[in-house]
Structure formats: C-alpha cells, structure tokens
Design a protein around this nucleic acid. Structure first.
Length: 707
DNA sequence: GGCATGTGTATTTTT
DNA sequence: TACACATGCC
C-alpha cells in the first residue's frame, strides 16, 4: 500500500499511534501534543487502508470536538466519505443506536430525552407525591437527589456506598431515597422518557446482551475514544461490551487533565486500561507544539506535586525569552481593567480578539468583566456558565414541543399546564389524570405499519374534557387549539400559508414544518410570557432565533434531541455560522476550555477559594482535581499567558465567619512555581506584590512559612 | 387551591 | 445574591 504524504507531518510517536495495527492502543497525550491531529490522522489512515467509514466509531467529549476531528480528517482523505464516520459524544451515539436497536430492550423508538434539571424536577414531584417533603428532618434537595442518582448509576455504585462516601448527611434517608429512585425509574418507563444516564445504561445493556450486543460490537470495526481520562465506569463498561469480539480500540487521554470527577469520571479508566484490554500498546506523546517553553515550565511546575499519574514532562522547541506574567491587582475592578488593557494591547499588536481567551473557574467569575466589556463595546462570546437551554422561556418552549413529540411526557405537561393562569400543581395533576383516564396504549411500532390511520394519541387526549378550574377554561382551550394546530388540525387559513397543498382530508393532515410549529407556539406563548416575566421582549427574541435554527431541521425529534443533548453553549452560537470577519473575545470556564487553544490566555482569580474553589477543598482528591484544572487553564496558551490575582475581595460573599478583605494567592502557585513567573503589579495594585499572601490572621501566615 | 410575600440557605464544573 | 421553600392571605 502506498504511504500517504501527510504521514510525514507526524513525529515518530504520533506516527506509531496513527499507523498502529489492530488491537488495543492507549495513547497518553499531554496537553498540546497534537492529540486532535493524531486522532484525525488515525481516522484518515483507517479510511486510507480501506476500512468502511461507516464502521468507525469516534467517541468524543463534545460534538464540537468530533466535528473538528472529522473536518481535519476530511482534509486528508475524501471528505464526503469521512462524513459517514460515526462521530459524537457517548450520549449522542447512544441516542442514535437506541433509536434503531432499542426495541431489543423493549424501548420504543419515539422516546424523548430529559436533561439533568428535568430529572431534578421529576424527583421533586415524586418527593411531594410520596409525601417525603413533610418530615422536619431536612430531606435532600431536588438537585441533590438527581446528583446522587446520577453518580450512583455512572459509577456503578450501590446507593448505600454513594451516600456514605459522597453524601453522608443524606444517609439517614436511604430508604426514602431508594423509594424515590424506584418510582423515578418506573415513571420514566411509563412515559417513554430517558434521562442522560439511561442513554448510557441502555446502551450498556444493549452492548452486554449476547445476541444484539455481538451484532452491535461487530458493526464497528474500530472504536476510537477521545478524552478518555474523563470517562466514567459505565462508559468503560460499554466499551468492554462493544469490544468483546472485535479488539480494535484506541483511547487517547491525559490523566493530568482529568477534571470531571463530579460527573463520576475516574482516572482509573485510563490508568487501568492496560489491564482491562490486555496486550495494549502504550504510546506517549510528550512534545508540545502549542506553547512556548516558558509556559510549559510553569505548567510542569504546577503539576509536579500531583500524586498518581503517568509521569511526563512536556517540552517544546518553541522558544521565548518572555516568562508568563503573574499580575497582582488591587481588587476585582482593577483586575478587570488590567485584563482589558492587555487585551487591547495585543489587539493593537495584531492578535485578533478571537485568538485571546479569558478563563475562570466558575461561570459567575466573569460577570464584572462582562459588564466592563459591554460598556467598552468589546464583543465577546461566553462559553460555560448558565446556558441558554437553562432559561425558563426556552424550557417552556421545549416542554410544548415535547408534548407534541411524546404526549406521555408528564413533566412537560406539568410545566405547560402551570403556565395557565389559575392552574397550580393540584389542578395540573387533576387535568393530567383526566387526560390519561382510560389512557391510550403508548405508541409502539409493531413493524407492520398501521393498516388503518390511527388517530394520534395526543389528538385523542385533546378530545377529552378535563376538569379545568373555572377561571382557566379559556386558557386551556387556547392551549388545546394551539397543540392541535401544531398537529395540522384546525385554524386552516392562517397557519398553512407556506404549503398551499390541496386539502386531502379534513382529518389527519400532515403537521406543519417544525419552524412553523414553533411559530404557532410562540404566538400562543407571547401573552403568557409577558405575564410571567418582566423582560419578555428579550425572551421572545430568543424564541424567534430558536425558530430560525429549527428551520434547518427536517424532523421535530432531531431538533428536540439536539437541543437537549448538544445545547448551544452561548446565545450567539444560535445565530448559526458566525460571520467570519467578525472578531470577538472568548470568555470561558476552564471546563469548557478543554481541548481549545489561543495565542493569548488570561486566567482570572488565582486566589485561594477561587482556584481551588472553596467547595472542593474538603478532601485531597478534590484539591488535586483543582490543581489539574489550573493546569488545563495554563496549557491552553500558545504565546502569552497572564495569571491575575486580585488582592482584595470586597463583598466577602458567603464566607463563614469574619469577612476576609485580603485574598490569599492560590495554593498551587508555590514558591517553585513563582520562579517561572514574571511578577508584575498594576498601577492600582499598590506596588506591593509581597502583600499578596497577607491573610487576616498573621499567625496563619507564619505557619505557612514553616510548612 | 393559587399566588404574593417573606425568610433562610447554599453557593462549581456539564453530557 | 439569587433561588428554593414556607407562610399567610385571597
């Protein structure tokens, strides 16, 4: 076979990984060592070798990552063929496979998916129904319940163990929590709804199944997994299931960048890979192509204290005489000024805004900066933090769409009914009971195609006359008409201006396109939105945007699924392909910055309590993960790295005890790390870098000197 | 039973 | 500070 010319672009280790033969392969790829390139080339190589792209499975952490890799592979071999590779997150791939193979598990293919906050809401409903909320000993909150459930499932742990280790204060409620969880699972089944965890759980069940599992595994000749350090036990079980007969698997990751333990990800997966897949070859990539050496000095120094790991020292041939800067600022506003100042400096020097990023630990850490950027009219995109999908109006719209897709989805009904003036939880419950009275069988495809046109379950429901509170009957009627209109019934003149098809029958017409459905729902929602929220105008604008996006979709199911499984990270993402000439600064949580790189990186709030976050300093493992988080942030930078440390925090927010005015430098920036920084002070920063570590209690300071 | 108002508390990261 | 939860009034 001929050797493609692009192999020459790879270093020996990368080439080894790309052209490796069959069998398990573990690639330890340090930050910036060309991981994406290696995976992209591996895909291209396999296709070049003649592997059917349809039989390659590329599992990534985000869809963006999959798209990027396949794009790059498409530049090396025929792009149209590369498009047939199965690429996406575990969850997205599970969704696709379950729609096809799910019936082997008695899973109807029309299931809808609920996200984590939906799961929490359902937990809440159950808690109320089972009357567990009443006891005076405080019962876990709904988010906590959802988190416990999810961890237990993903880590393959018994509830008792999860509680004992991670939620000891909830242990006394073990029985009741178990009751809620059992009920939770029953409800989801009845309503034909899957949550995120179910997607993995069902895929795993499928993969372990003797018959279908074999077929599923054989379907993929090669499995490639990116960011393996951030997979959990359930995911590794899925992989083991898929690779019982076919042994071709390549996983790529960096244990030093494992930052998702809160999602039950475990470094054990990557550390134990050679045992789980015996005979695995290990390739380590250490040459960093991203950063100049001084940046790597700082990064390596930060990681030097970590415990168990595949030791590797990043090195780069990219030289620079400039050390990264540690900038001491007076306070947060001063930090803000300093950041903006440097950003503009680099912009003037020719580095566009989109090659610069501001990174921070938590979504709200950038709020002061955002205000300032807006004031100065500096455009920016923010990744991470509160997402679009989390806002009430988007959830409302999604709930209405879900009803249309799956009328058994009670959570969505509940939400939609509560929007009606005069309807609260009790009325909603009663209305739903009435709608389900003599419930039509959940739709199941029998594989034989219906002989007679069966009225849709939703329309059948809407024929009923539920007991609606007297003051709300008109509102309910409006809802009813709206939902019917979305099914293509009634309101003939106005709705279907797009398709002047001659009416075939009065009943059972094809529903309007998804974008039109959203338009109908938006019209209905408008007055409700104005009643419920004060900034209704902005919210309705968002919904118009949503309508735009939807016009690119053929099926409602695909649209809803994408919105749930791969929600836009920023409002501006929704605008579709951004204008290429448009320049904007990147703001991002460190978590969302994973896998990205920029010429200039600014890391905010290098103060103890921020990095590491106060929340995570309970145990040493938590602290270790925070260290890796800082490492991820630092290694995003190619040429210039700035770390900012505000000396004072005014609002002393939610701190127990006395308000600390003075912050303490992050514990990860130790003496030895400091030597790799150039320390500077802003004009406002009092010119006193040594004041940085001064805590409220001088004795504490002294103890540190000895420690 | 719905809804407005008041009180207290937890507070990150995301598929 | 913002949100969930409780209370009390209509």
């Amino acid at each position: 076979m001929d050797t493609p010319i692009w192999l020459g672009d790879l270093n020996p280790q990368q080439r080894r990984a790309v052209t490796g033969g069959d069998g398990p392969l573990l690639v330890i790829a340090g930050a910036g060592t060309g991981k994406t390139k290696t995976l992209a080339c591996r895909v291209a190589w396999l296709i070049h070798k003649g592997v059917d792209p349809d039989r390659i499975l590329l599992l990534t952490f985000t869809r963006r990552a999959a798209a990027e890799m396949l794009k790059r592979a498409g530049q090396l071999v025929d792009a149209s063929i590369v498009g047939r590779v199965w690429g996406g997150t575990f969850h997205a791939v599970a969704n696709r496979l379950l729609r096809v193979y799910g019936q082997a598990l008695d899973l109807p293919p029309e299931f809808t998916i609920m996200d984590q906050s939906d799961a929490a809401d359902m937990m809440n409903l159950l808690r109320a129904e089972l009357e567990l909320a009443k006891g005076d000993k405080r019962f876990p909150r709904k988010e906590t319940l959802a988190a416990i459930y999810s961890r237990s499932v993903n880590a393959r742990e018994k509830l008792a163990d999860t509680l004992e280790v991670f939620y000891p204060w909830c242990s006394e409620h073990k029985e009741d929590i178990a009751r809620i969880f059992r009920e939770f699972q029953d409800r989801k089944k009845q309503q034909n709804v899957l949550d995120y965890d179910d997607l993995l759980l069902f895929l795993n069940a499928l993969a372990q199944e003797p018959g279908v599992g074999d077929a599923l595994g054989d379907r993929f000749e090669h499995v490639l997994v990116d960011e393996y350090q951030d997979t959990n036990l359930l995911q590794s079980e899925i992989l083991l299931g898929l690779r019982r007969r076919q042994r071709n698997i390549m996983v790529v990751g960096d244990d030093a960048q494992s930052i998702y333990s809160f999602r039950a990800a475990t470094v054990r997966n990557i550390l134990d890979f050679p045992q789980q897949f015996s005979g695995a070859e290990i390739v380590t990539l250490e040459q960093n192509y991203r950063s100049v050496q001084p940046i790597l000095h700082v990064s390596n120094a930060v990681m030097a204290h970590a415990k168990e790991r595949y030791t590797k020292e990043l090195w780069s041939s990219r030289v620079s005489s400039r050390k990264p800067s540690l900038v001491y600022c007076r306070d947060e506003p001063d930090q803000c000024q300093a950041v903006v100042h440097r950003i503009l400096e680099h912009l003037e020097a020719g580095i566009p805004l989109r090659q610069q990023a501001v990174l921070f630990r938590a979504g709200h850490h950038s709020s002061v900066l955002e205000v300032e950027l807006t004031r100065r009219k500096i455009p920016f995109h923010k990744y991470g933090g509160l997402r679009f999908i989390e806002t009430a109006h988007i959830k409302d719209m999604l709930a209405m769409l879900r009803i249309l897709e799956n009328p058994y989805d009670q959570l969505s009904w509940h939400r939609v009914l509560l929007m009606l003036p005069g309807v609260g939880p009790s009325s909603a419950r009663r209305i739903m009971d009435d709608l389900w009275q003599a419930p039509p069988e959940p739709a199941r495809t029998n594989g034989h195609g219906a002989e007679t046109p069966v009225q849709s379950p939703l329309l059948a429901m809407l024929e009923r006359a539920p007991r609606v509170p007297a003051g709300s009957t008109e509102h309910y009627e409006k809802l009813r008409q709206t939902l019917r209109a979305c099914c293509g019934i009634g309101a003939a003149g106005k709705v279907r201006k797009r398709k002047p098809e001659p009416p075939r029958e009065t009943r059972g017409q094809a529903p309007p396109p998804i974008a039109t459905q959203i338009e109908i729902l938006r019209r209905y929602y408008e007055p409700l939105c104005e009643r419920m929220h004060d900034n209704a105008r902005m919210r309705l604008k968002d919904l118009e945007q949503l309508e735009q996006i939807a016009s690119g979709y053929r099926s409602r199911q695909a649209f809803i699924t994408d919105l749930t499984l791969d929600p836009p990270h920023s409002t501006s993402d929704l605008a579709g392909a951004p204008y290429l000439e448009e320049d904007y600064l990147i703001l991002s949580t460190i978590h969302s910055a994973k896998g990205c790189e920029w010429d200039v990186v600014h890391v905010l709030h290098a103060a103890d309590g921020m990095i590491p976050s106060d929340m995570s300093t309970g145990d040493s493992e938590g602290v270790d993960e925070e260290r890796r988080l800082l490492y991820v942030a630092l290694t995003r930078a190619k040429d210039f790295l700035y770390v900012y440390f505000p000396l004072r925090y005014y609002h002393a927010k939610y701190r127990f005890g006395a308000a600390h005015n003075f912050a303490k430098l992050s514990r990860f920036i130790t003496k030895s790390v400091l030597t790799h920084f150039e320390q500077t002070t802003t004009p406002q920063g009092d010119g006193l870098p040594h004041a940085a570590g001064e805590p409220a209690d001088p004795r504490k300071r002294m103890r540190e000197l000895w420690g």
